[in-house]
Nucleic acid binder design. Structure first.
Length: 479
RNA sequence: CGGGGUGUGGCGAAGUUUGGUAUCGCGCUUGGUUCGGGACCAAGAGGCCUCGGGUUCGAAUCCCGACACUCCGACCA
């Protein structure tokens, strides 16, 4: 990639200033625009198309695992939000309140949903009466509002789009299985659709969701070594069920509380795509969510037959792929740069010389590699190449993840890595929250990402305090 | 919420120190020539200089205030 020239001058180089590179990319490629509401963003067609492709894929996965879509109100009465103590404490600082309606002050103020556990619980209390009513496997696609102090497009905005699954189960075992099953759906989606490898595991007590018994997470690493909490799945036990008085008659005719889960991913994933795959020329979109999978650039369009042939090729590919034929009179060079910046995985060049020989030129966005291929069987060639691009994006990201993962055997080593490197640090931990806090303070922001599922015995003692170690923890800075 | 930076046609900037008719590049429109890595010629359109006060004969420029964006921290999906 180093030999590939930086084509777009307006984009700050990724290595110069990753943060500026990010904001340049999202604006220049027309993914988002800012709105007049602080912290809120306009998701433009090119950005929204990525979200639609994400939704389509994920929604199919949810349906395949037995879930149904529903829609809950966007307002939550204050009294309802108050019912679960940890939950309200976790969210209260960042909720927006509606105090007036139709010009009159409301008797009870309404919170704009920051998440919908309480609404689902209120509803479940009404419709769950028997073990025969379980499980309830609901999901909703919606937006939520969290009054964030610092906002960045896709990564953290005051309002963002997401999906939230909320399920109720007869037994704790079933609910726990659901929690892990959906985490696996996320992990697989990241890998197979977004070409992003993740570290996954359980959040520590300190980092878990407000009101949950256990929180599980997928943690992709961005190109610069910083983590992004990429999706979470929570096991609630029966805490909310008790708070909301959700009960059912069990198989033994006793009244029981159901066991609950929730899980969600958001438009933040678009940020993960940008920061995992992007380069100095702009976006590099994984083929399976790219709004345009291949762009056809006709060369010397004025010459007889070129445009007609290009249209013919476009038509032959449209059934299987998302294709754009750019027949505007911008110069070919302009088009090359434009679609490179926008991260279109594959470019198909078609000029008089090619047509004569019955070929076209394919150019990969990820490597810049050019190949001349026959127009005969082009659809199969394109399919193969898109899969190939997907795999190489994944492998490149995996390589980065591995290269930026370190192991600390003692605290001096830990601090040295945290200071000098950017990435994940594997270390042992005693289970005491004080040690997590100490790490965060001593390093200025390194936090536990998760206790990975495949724990290793790096040493027998906590990297901070030297007491017997309970877990292997992955640490890192996060967005 | 603390600390920096920035607000000037759609985008990027100059002009602000030292007040005096609002500039440049890109983009846009129309016509023509071009086309294998951001083409060229010609003619056009487009701006209460972020907003609100103040000082002044006169404010993009000086003073006070607000807001927004952005970067770095703290907080969080």
């Amino acid at each position: 990639m180093s030999e590939q020239k930086k084509m777009v001058e307006e984009i700050t180089s990724r290595d110069t200033d990753f943060a500026r590179w990010y904001t340049d990319v999202v604006k220049k490629t027309e993914l988002v625009d800012y709105s007049s509401v602080k912290g809120c963003m306009v998701i433009r067609p090119y950005g929204y198309a990525i979200w639609e492709n994400i939704q389509k894929d994920l929604d199919a996965r949810f349906k395949a695992t037995g879930h149904e879509n529903v829609y809950m109100p966007m307002f939550i009465p204050e009294s309802l939000l108050q019912k679960e103590k940890d939950h309200v404490e976790g969210f209260a600082p960042e909720v927006a309140w509606v105090t007036h309606g139709g010009g009159e002050k409301l008797a009870e103020r309404l919170c704009v949903r920051p998440t919908s556990e309480t609404l689902f619980c209120e509803h479940y209390a009404k419709i769950i009466n028997s073990y025969r009513d379980l499980p309830k496997l609901y999901n909703q696609w919606c937006s939520v509002v969290r009054w964030e102090k610092t906002t960045r497009p896709f990564l953290r905005s005051a309002e963002f789009l997401w999906q939230e699954g909320h399920t109720m189960h007869e037994t704790a075992e079933e609910a726990k299985a659901e929690t892990l099953r959906m985490l696996e759906v996320y992990r697989d989606f990241y890998k197979e659709t977004l070409a992003i490898p993740v570290v996954w595991g359980q959040k520590t007590e300190k980092e878990k969701f407000a009101g949950a018994e256990a929180t599980y997470t997928v943690e992709p690493m961005m190109h610069n070594g910083v983590a992004l909490q990429g999706g979470t799945s929570h096991y609630f036990g029966d805490g909310f069920a008790r708070a909301f008085n959700i009960r059912f008659s069990g198989r033994d005719n006793t009244l029981q509380y159901p066991h609950q889960t929730s899980w969600g991913v958001s438009t933040r994933m678009i940020g993960a795509i940008i920061m995992t795959h992007g380069d100095d020329s702009g976006l590099v979109l994984p083929p399976r969510v790219a709004p345009i999978q291949a762009v056809i650039v006709p060369i010397a369009m004025h010459k007889g037959g070129v445009l007609e042939k290009a249209e013919e090729v476009a038509a032959s590919l449209k059934e299987r792929f998302r294709i754009k034929l750019d027949a505007t009179d911008n110069s070919p060079g302009w088009k090359f740069s434009e679609y490179e910046m926008k991260g279109v995985p594959l470019r198909i060049e078609l000029g008089p010389r090619d047509i004569e020989q019955g070929v076209c030129v394919l150019v990969r966005r990820d490597t810049g590699e050019k190949t001349t291929v026959s127009l005969e069987g082009l659809a199969d060639t394109v399919a193969e190449m898109l899969d190939n691009i997907h795999d190489s994006l994944y492998n490149r990201a995996l390589e980065n993840l591995k290269n930026r993962t370190y192991t600390a055997h003692d605290y001096d080593e830990f601090l040295a890595i945290a200071k000098e490197k950017s990435g994940y640090i594997n270390a042992m931990w005693c289970g005491d929250e004080a040690c997590e806090t100490k790490i965060k303070e001593d390093t200025g922001g390194v936090k536990s990402r998760c206790i990975p599922f495949d724990e290793e015995q790096i040493s027998d003692v906590c990297v901070v305090c030297g007491k017997p170690a309970k877990h292997h923890v992955v640490f890192g800075r996060q967005y």
